[in-house]
Design a protein around this nucleic acid. Structure first.
Length: 496
RNA sequence: GGCGCAUUCGUCUAGUGGUCAGGACGUAGCCCUCUCACGGCUAAAACAGGGGUUCAAAUCCCCUAUGCGCUACCA
């Protein structure tokens, strides 16, 4: 009978969800789903000093945001009793022992060994303590940790699903601590007890754990657990090839979310780090790729995190959104940058402007956080300044003709409205206005750049921006007239 | 220092003994176009180095170099 594969993702809540950790989570999810197995989320919070409840919350939020779900949930701090029971068992079987060495002695031992050019490892001093000595130490109330007896007789070997056979010499491993003197389990011990107890079949984790695997295999055997399959993922590095850290910019999922990356884009990009679907496809939903995911296909070499490629992918997902969806997604950023206020959400005038802006700038956007920057100028009633290039445009005689004609067209259109009617033009209606100007100036052979540039500058004071009909529809007819008049005034007062 | 892992264009990768070494990001140029984007086309760009094995090696073996990780009563 085939047993159901069980995967686990085991973050420690000592910080937010890091990019590398998120990728590990994603790959575990992908592997579990592709093998129709279960995914266990286990919070490894045995380090009481560094673990924080709000980090746990933040990690869970980010995991959910990425679209990863799990089937079971555990917290190591809820299981302290279990670890102690297993440790006691090992003690009873003489596979572990109490170590009364002080941190000071251990520190000195390590220093001396390192100075002698040796690998630091525990010298097994407390291993052969007599029962009476132990009794005495205990009576004196001396603090102790529990160490595991490492059998140095045979080499430790395992077959990594990604890297193949890996061999360790047990001589390099000293008797290590499984229960700290405060009664909490050490990382290696808690992991093995949990993986064994939870019947984990596949341990898919970061490369930084390869060396730990040797210790853990010893523990699996001593505890009588069946050994799971191991697979170690390579690291994700920063631009310069060093470990990804703060100085490379954002490193946690929540930071990227705040900058305006979409969950789909993030998950898509992360899946491309050390894995590829084989064909030349790069844009896909992680759900669609589950069937194609195989642990064996994961690459062995480390990957450098490339923000530019992430941005490219993010842009693609932004372009897949409807203007309505995009406007909605951008709202928090507009509020954050004080382009609009929270109350403006109830203002149809403002919302209309944002919706049209979302449509107009969708192709330009790489991250949502840039949207306020694009929209800023359109929320002012006046043109705040004229760029150097736009002043050059205004100097042309034909430009003055164009702007004059444009103003007339706008004013005529404005008059056509009954005062009681809401004055609002959509892009199509705006396009008609521009065509009208083009029609009027046809005889004077003003067209193309000579025609469109002055219109653009008269409205925005810039030579760049979205398509002209979009510009007018965002600004609105009334304010367009106001802005064109401002430009005419500007030409006059600067005698351009 | 010891132990472990890795090494294909600048970057992410395809490739598992015979390929003009493919794709993508980025870069450059062209096209589209009032501009910026988007889109389309094109170009430059790689098997870390040295030894083997083989008729044949990016692919298999060894050595060197480089990078990364671990070397805690952190996880």
């Amino acid at each position: 009978m085939k047993i159901m594969p069980r995967f686990r993702f085991a973050p420690s809540p000592t910080g937010g969800l890091h990019i590398g950790t998120a990728r590990t989570a994603l790959f575990n999810w992908l592997a579990a789903r592709s093998m129709k197995g279960h995914l266990v989320l286990r919070i490894e919070d045995t380090d009481v000093k560094r673990s924080k409840g709000f980090y746990e919350k933040s990690i869970i939020k980010d995991l959910e945001w990425l679209g990863l779900e799990w089937d079971e949930f555990y917290r190591q701090s809820d299981r302290i009793k279990i670890y102690r029971e297993f440790a006691q068992k090992l003690l009873d079987q003489n596979k572990a022992y109490r170590c009364f060495c002080t941190p000071e002695r251990l520190e000195k031992l390590k220093k001396d060994q390192y100075a002698a050019g040796k690998m630091s490892k525990y010298d097994n001093r407390c291993r052969e303590l007599s029962p009476s000595e132990i009794e005495k130490n205990l009576k004196e109330g001396k603090k102790f940790a529990i160490r595991f007896k490492v059998d140095t007789d045979r080499e430790i070997t395992f077959n990594d699903l990604i890297r193949g056979s890996i061999v360790f010499n047990p001589d390099t491993i000293g008797d290590f601590i499984i229960i700290k003197s405060d009664g909490t389990p050490s990382y290696n011990f808690a992991v093995v007890v949990d993986d064994g107890d939870m019947k984990i079949t596949h341990v898919l984790r970061g490369e930084d754990h390869i060396t730990n695997t040797a210790r853990q295999i010893l523990l699996f055997e001593s505890l009588g657990f069946r050994q799971p399959f191991f697979a170690h993922l390579s690291m994700i590095l920063g631009r310069d090839g060093s470990k990804l850290s703060k100085r490379h910019g954002a490193t946690t999922i929540s930071e990227f979310r705040e900058e305006g990356y979409l969950a789909e884009a993030m998950a898509n990009y992360l899946s491309l780090l050390s894995w590829s679907p084989g064909d030349n496809e790069e844009i896909f939903s992680i759900r669609d790729v589950v069937d194609r995911f195989r642990i064996q296909d994961i690459s062995r070499s480390p990957a450098i995190f490339d923000v530019d490629k992430l941005k490219w992918i993010n842009g693609i997902y932004i372009r897949k959104k409807t203007p309505e969806e995009l406007a909605d997604l951008c709202m928090p950023y507009l509020i954050r940058d004080k382009i609009i206020s929270r109350e403006d959400k109830e203002n149809p005038e403002v919302m209309r402007k944002i919706l049209r802006g979302a449509k107009a700038f969708r192709d330009n956007l790489k991250v949502l956080g840039d949207f306020p920057f694009y929209m800023k100028d359109f929320f002012s009633d006046v043109i705040t300044d004229y760029s150097a290039e736009s002043i050059e445009v205004l100097r042309l005689d034909t430009s003055k003709v164009v702007i004059g004609s444009f103003l007339k067209v706008l004013e005529n259109r404005y008059k056509s409205f009954d005062n009681s009617i809401d004055i609002d033009l959509n892009e199509e209606q705006c396009r008609e206005l521009i065509n009208l100007v083009a029609e009027n100036l046809k005889e004077q052979k003003i067209k193309g750049r000579l025609l469109y540039m002055p219109i653009r500058v008269s409205l925005t004071g810039k030579t760049h921006g979205p398509e002209l009909p979009d510009v007018i529809s965002i600004i609105g007819l009334k304010n367009s007239i106001q802005r064109v008049k401002q430009t005419l005034e500007y030409i006059k007062s600067n005698s351009l």
